[in-house]
Computed example of a mutant assay.
Amino acid sequence: MADREVTLSIFRFDPEKDKEGRFVDYKVPTVEGMVVLDAVRYVQEKIDTTLAIRWNCKAARCGSCSAEINNRPALMCKTRIDTLGDRITVAPMRAFPVIRDLVTDVDENYRIMSKIPKFTVRKELMNPEAEGKKHQDVWRIQQINVERAKEFKKCIECFLCQDVCHVVREHKSGYFGPRHIVKAASLDMHPLDIVNRAKFLNEEGGLGYCNITKCCQEVCPEHIHITDNAIIPEKERAVDLQYDPLMHAIKRRLMKKRGETVA
């Protein structure tokens, strides 16, 4: 039995017919425990079967049903109707090209991911028997390092953090975006990895463009501390590679002795 009726204002776009998209209103009856994905599927099944949506698990594990609900990036399957008003807007993620209706093209994320240097270990770890060591011994790591990496592994690649990032969405600066900094950080923080990706992220990934607003962290459905535990540490690594405070202090003292202008 329906508890109440809500108006769902859904973005509609057909590339073969429309130059620009438009919002169309639909009346949807609700029941207890209903989420936005349920309401959108009701529209697709009962009212307009041409509506294009992307979803899979309906359990907040696949990241497929990302959208902007009342102008906030969120998973449709995790957003309850009873937490919203009587009028709900559902739009595609604005950071990515719209394929049709609520379906966006997120392929760029996988192209970026392919650029990030892969997990790399020392050669002797690949053949520990040659060094007279057991395989399980050389690959053993401390639990604290396991926990650090585990947080980043929770990412379901919903790309909501990419969508909410104003640098990715508006400035087209070449910044990889929070999802990919998390990926790189998960590799950099592995104790057996020998690659430092900070310089790559700074020069190729536009790491410096992030101004640490933490908006990506706020919308993450897995509650990953994206800014605190991934972006800021990578920024610190990038600065360490370019700036040595001890050498800078020595340089300033020598310049001062010579009477030169100290920056």
Rank of each mutant, 00 (worst) to 15 (best):
A185V: 09
E68P: 02
N229C: 15
R80N: 14
R22K: 13
T30P: 01
R122M: 14
E260Y: 11
T89A: 06
V239S: 12
R54V: 04
K46P: 04
E203H: 08
C77R: 08
K133P: 07
G85M: 06
L8Y: 02
V219E: 02
I156E: 04
C220F: 06
F159Y: 13
L75I: 05
V239P: 10
R61K: 14
R12Q: 08
V262G: 11
V195I: 13
A263T: 14
T213S: 12
E32L: 09
N56R: 05
E129W: 09
V167G: 01
M113N: 04
C65F: 03
T30S: 04
V36F: 10
G205Y: 01
M247F: 11
A59I: 14
H180L: 05
T7I: 10
T120G: 10
E45G: 02
R80G: 13
E20M: 07
K115C: 00
A230H: 13
I156W: 03
A91W: 00
V239M: 14
R148P: 08
L37H: 02
Y42Q: 08
D82G: 07
F96N: 00
V167R: 06
R252Q: 15
H135L: 15
E108Q: 07
E170D: 12
N211K: 12
Y243A: 13
H225K: 14
P221Q: 10
F13A: 04
M1I: 06
D188N: 11
R100K: 15
D18S: 00
G259Y: 01
W139S: 07
K118A: 09
N56D: 14
G206V: 01
D137W: 06
A198W: 00
H180V: 00
D163H: 03
I116H: 01
R122W: 11
V6K: 03
P97S: 08
G259H: 08
Y110R: 03
L241K: 12
K235C: 09
I47F: 03
N109M: 10
F96K: 01
D240W: 11
H180T: 01
M1C: 06
P73Y: 02
D188I: 04
K172H: 10
L8G: 02
H166W: 09
L187N: 07
R169W: 10
D82E: 15
F176Y: 14
V6M: 04
D228A: 15
N202I: 11
R72F: 03
A74V: 06
E204C: 03
A95T: 07
N145I: 09
I141R: 07
K154H: 10
R4P: 01
C220K: 07
P233K: 06
L187H: 02
R100T: 09
L254H: 12
D244H: 06
I116D: 00
K19T: 12
I226C: 10
D244R: 03
T104I: 08
L207Y: 02
H225T: 13
Q142A: 12
I99A: 05
E16C: 05
